[in-house]
Each structure stands twice: as C-alpha cells, then as structure tokens.
Design a protein around this nucleic acid. Structure first.
Lengths: 253, 253
DNA sequence: GGCTCGCGCTGCTTTAGATCAGCATTGTCT
DNA sequence: AGACAATGCTGATCTAAAGCAGCGCGAGCC
C-alpha cells in the first residue's frame, strides 16, 4: 500500500488491472489515484455476446475492463468481421468512441465481463485535474496502437502459422502483466472463429494451422486452454519481440 | 486571426496543418496556441530517404511534419517492410517513440521534408500547462490508431483492388483537410513499391491492380499524380466510409 | 427419446496473389 | 557517350489459403 490515509476505494484501485498496467508507465500520485477511483464508479456486468459499443453510433460510453474477455471489431460491407484486438482485464474498451463523433468500431463481450463505464467527462476532466494520469492514458492508447500496428504486420507480412503463433504469444505476454497465466500457457475462452476473424484467415484454415502447431509440439489450443509447449521455437517462428508492449523493466519516466 | 495580441510565431501556427487538424477536435485557447508554438521551435529539413526515427532505439525524438511526405514502417525478421501509415503535413511523426522505452517503429522521409522536433518534455508539459491541447493530442493519436485499424481491415478482409482503392481514397480525404489536393486527385510522391509495402502486396501485383483500376476508368496513378476518375464507384468498390477520420462537420466537443 | 445448434475437424477443388524472369524508360553519374 | 540504378511494366508458373462439402460430438431443449 502506498498511503494508508487513502480512502478504501482508492486502495482497491491500487490493485486493479488498469492500475497495474498504467504503473508500468508512471508512478501515479494520490491525485491520480483519486481520479482513477472515479473511473471505477458505475461498475456493470455484461453477458457473453453483449455489444457494449456500437460502430457508427454517437454518444457511446467507454469502459475499463475489470474481469473477463472482450473483443473490438469492425464489420465490413461484405459482412465479414475483422477483430482488431482482444481485450483483457485492465484494458480500455471503446476509448475512441468517446473521443470521436461516431464510434469507428464495436466492442463485444466474449465471456461474462465486469466493466466500469467511463464518461467522456471523466477522461477530459482528468486532463485538468490529474495530468500524470492523463499522460498515462495517452500512453495506454499508444500501447493499444502499437498492438494494432503489430497486428497489421501480422496480416501484411506473416504466414498463417507465424501469425497464429504471434497472436497467441502476444496474448500470453499481455496476460502475464495483469497476473493471469504463466510461461506455460493460459486459460483462453476464444473459439477458432475468433482466431479466424482476428487473423484474417478462414476458420477452416485456422483449424489446420492449429493442428500443425500441435503436431510440431509448439503449442496446444484445446478445451479453452492454450499451452505453450516450446516457447523458444514459437518465438523464433513468429518473430515475436515483446518490445512493442513496452512493459518490461520498471517504470522510467 | 483569433487574437491580434499573440506573438507573430503564434499567428503563423494558426495556419499550420497541425492546428487545422487539431481544430477539428477542440477550439484551442490562447494557452494552447502558446504551447503549440513551442512544438514548432527546432524546425529541421531532411532529405528524401532520411530516417528520422529508428525502430528499437531509445531516446528518440518525435516531430510534427510541416511540409512533404514521410512513412512509418516496421521491418520484419524476414527483411520485409510493412508500411504502417503515410504521413502528410500536420501529422505527428514517431509520437510513440517518445512515450515508449524503445521505439516500436521507424519513420523515413519520402520527399524532402520540413519537420519540427518535439521533445517528450514538450508533450508532457502540455499535460500540465494546456490540458485542452493535451486532449487534442490524445485525439490525434486516437485518429492515427483509427487509421491503422482501418488498414488492418484492409489487409485482413479486402481484395487487392479494394485495398488499393481504399488506401488512395483515404489519402485523398486526409490531404483535403490540410488543404492539399481536391476531389479530382492529388500530387503523390509514392512509388508502386511504397504502395506494395503499405498494402501487403508484391510490387508486381500492385502494378497489375493499378492497370485494372485505370482500364476500368476508376483512377489513374501515374507520373506522381493520382487522378480520381469515378469517386462514387471507387468508394463503393473500396467500401470507403470516411467516418473513422472524424474530420467532417465542425468541432463539437 | 430425437432435435437442433455450436464448435471442431477433414478431404477436395479453386483462386488470388506470389515468385521468377525479363524488357523499356528515364535520370544521374563518370 | 556509356554505365548504372530506379522505376514501371508484362508473361508464365507456382502456392498458400479460400471455398465447398461434409462428418463427429457434446450441450441444451422440446
């Protein structure tokens, strides 16, 4: 605990996944933590499949994901879905939907989730009241962008196997930071259809790729669990370098 | 001019491409404009091909692009290049490189460019001194992310023709906001190799796609100029909806 | 019990785009 | 002038992944 005189809510926040993540960027002051507490009012529960944010609609809310998994995606005119990112605890959901006139993407719960609604006033007030926290929000948004950029390289220049391996390694690394899963694997509620929509592949092909990865003793994706069988070879296959997650080492700035 | 008592430098800033872009989000106050002036000290000129930001290196600078074109990209272990985005006047270059421990991407001048170096202290001080400007920076970063997200959909779910059309329509829309080009087309210093690296295609295939688009009287990419021959059909082909650029209509928030 | 539905899995055929190879044009350097 | 490097362009061949078709299995439901 940083400061025993903080209100009880703030102490809970200290342990939240979001705080863990932001603390990798700056050490937050009391004023920042007080403001973070406000982010965590309005906690909600949503069932699997519920759409929290709707592409093309105005006056959307953003959320901070506390428990469970979600995915952000865009629908294309052809009716196909492109999953942009998978969200795990500590991630913002739909941040761009409150900064933009109309949301450019949708967010849907994959599992049952708990999330706190964040209003655009919460974010914008943070810029006046808690500049360090606001800077951390910019950092978090930039980190999200870095992940999308890496996904772009995935789709543009990596083969189906490399892509799949890279995607699952990234998920593992992100989950480790918020204290879920370990080097050997993690619980994963995604279906092969989720993978297909995220990786720009057909579900049929994802299935084949997963089989090959399993037959090569690289990883197993089965029964809602991902097992990393050979991290080194997987990392080399995928060309995975976690630098872009900016999460190793203690906070510097 | 908003305020005749501002220093001369600030009045110039009022007309800068960055200011035009940020003003689409919030109307900036004098304090914001003063801070923006600081962003525009340290103006530099770079020759075509110069690499301003280096992937994997620490202590990088960011820049605001004032004149000319640049591209941000990542190199993959295979030696292939994925262009993440093309930058035009008013865009930030390498913003993530000052927020992260090590830069996750590189930035290279396509043409001769003029750019102002922005230190991480410039950005972070803005959070304390000019919260509205800081919020606008978050918006600009989010807009960049929205563009990368759209590129992701491009690579994941659109055919080579759709991708190419979409990419060039987006460029046209972005250039229009900063006052370059019009509905009929724009000067474009990119080579077919740039397109290939941005679109995740081979240069050979880009050439064929451009030929088909030309033969169908949709657009011409030739001699450093893009001519939009049939905007409506191109837009339908590409499934292009400029909403994600969040640049239409007057400022609301 | 039988029904459907979601999800995982597999074989066969097709195709979009890569790869390979080579030519034409233009501008720059010596 | 000749050499060369970039860039644009084209035909022939190859291949990774899509598309299509279908089966198995367990869960939930009438």
């Amino acid at each position: 605990m940083r400061c025993p005189c903080l209100p009880k809510a703030a102490i809970l926040i200290l342990q939240s996944a979001l705080t863990k993540k932001l603390s990798a960027f700056v050490s937050l002051m009391d004023a920042d933590l007080d403001t973070l507490v406000r982010f965590h009012q309005r906690r909600r529960t949503f069932l699997p499949g519920h759409e929290l944010v709707h592409e093309g609609e105005t006056r959307q809310s953003a959320f901070v994901l506390a428990e469970g998994w979600a995915c952000s995606f865009k629908m294309l005119p052809s009716g196909e879905r492109q999953i942009v990112d998978i969200q795990v605890p500590g991630d913002f959901l739909g941040l761009r939907s409150i900064l933009f006139r109309t949301s450019d993407h949708s967010v849907r719960a994959v599992t049952r989730i708990e999330a706190s609604e964040v209003l655009s006033s919460d974010i914008l007030n943070a810029f006046s009241d808690a500049p360090r926290l606001a800077a951390a929000v910019l950092w978090a948004a930039s980190r999200d962008e870095a992940m999308v950029v890496e996904h772009l390289c995935n789709l543009g220049r990596r083969s189906a196997e490399e892509r799949t391996a890279h995607f699952l390694l990234e998920l593992g690394a992100r989950l480790k930071v918020v204290g879920i899963g370990d080097m050997n694997g993690f619980a994963c509620p995604l279906t092969q259809y989720h993978l297909a929509d995220a990786l720009g592949l057909s579900a049929v092909h994802v299935n084949r790729v997963l089989r090959r990865l399993r037959e090569d003793n690289l990883l197993m994706f089965r029964d809602g669990h991902v097992s990393i069988l050979d991290f080194e070879r997987l990392r080399d296959l995928a060309g995975f370098d976690a630098n872009y997650l900016d999460q190793d080492g203690p906070l510097l700035r």
